[in-house]
């Protein structure tokens, strides 16, 4: 039998591990070794386990809340077609409403900051996504060199929906091609 060492684990985690191990018909020792070996493999493979789990959690939210994949250039082309056909207001309304829905979905099991973080992970085509609290206000900044102007407006609507859904009041916003800045009031 290999040498053993003792590890101090948080009580809640140790208890949850015990439940998981029992549900799979294995010992806590076997279950924990299996998990820790997998973590080692990830780290030794040059990946960061924390980042990997963080992304997986975001993807899981995406999976559960009905996201799909699309080539980025194709989406921008579609959006331009719709805007040229005079549907910009209708589309912005539907993106705002989807933002509202997403915020409600995310906030069921995540804090406000976690919800925004998950969203930023799902929007992986964005070069920079920042949410900065400054006293009674906060700023959401979003940069992407590939966004078209029309898509920037549309995405701003989605972000506003998310922020309003999370309980913020939007004070003002600024949109340019590939740039979105939304200033919000942080209550309490």
């Amino acid at each position: 039998m290999p040498d053993r060492k003792m590890l101090a684990a948080r009580v809640d985690l140790a208890d949850r591990l015990k439940v998981l191990a029992e549900s799979r018909g294995v010992t806590v020792y076997a279950m924990l070794n299996d998990i820790l070996e997998s973590i080692l493999e990830v780290e030794e493979g040059g990946l960061n386990i924390k980042r990997l789990l963080d992304e997986y959690r975001a993807m899981d939210y995406g999976r559960r809340s009905g996201f799909t994949t699309i080539p980025e250039n194709l989406l921008y082309e579609l959006v331009d077609l719709c805007f040229e056909s005079g549907y910009s207001d209708k589309l912005r309304k539907s993106w705002f409403e989807t933002g509202l829905w997403l915020s409600k979905y995310l906030s069921v099991s995540s804090s406000i900051d976690e919800s925004i973080h998950i969203l930023s992970r799902l929007m992986w085509n964005i070069s920079e996504f920042r949410f900065e609290r400054r006293g009674g206000e906060a700023i959401l900044l979003c940069f992407s060199s590939r966004f078209t102007l029309n898509y920037s407006f549309l995405f701003e609507s989605l972000l506003k929906g998310v922020l309003v859904g999370l309980g913020f009041d939007v004070l003002d916003s600024e949109v340019d091609k590939g740039f979105i800045r939304i200033r919000i009031e942080v209550k309490g």
């Binding site: 992304e55 997986y56 993807m59 996201f67 799909t68 994949t69 080539p71 579609l78 929007m123 992986w124």
Partner: peptide, 28 residues
């Protein structure tokens, strides 16, 4: 999941809520 997402990212594939893709296409 991480590997697949990395592949998609570098190939210019992005994520979108399905209902928004449906809505956009319904306007074309």
């Amino acid at each position: 999941s991480y590997m697949v997402a990395s592949m998609h990212r570098s190939a210019g594939i992005m994520l979108i809520p399905v209902n928004l893709m449906n809505t956009i296409l319904s306007r074309v």
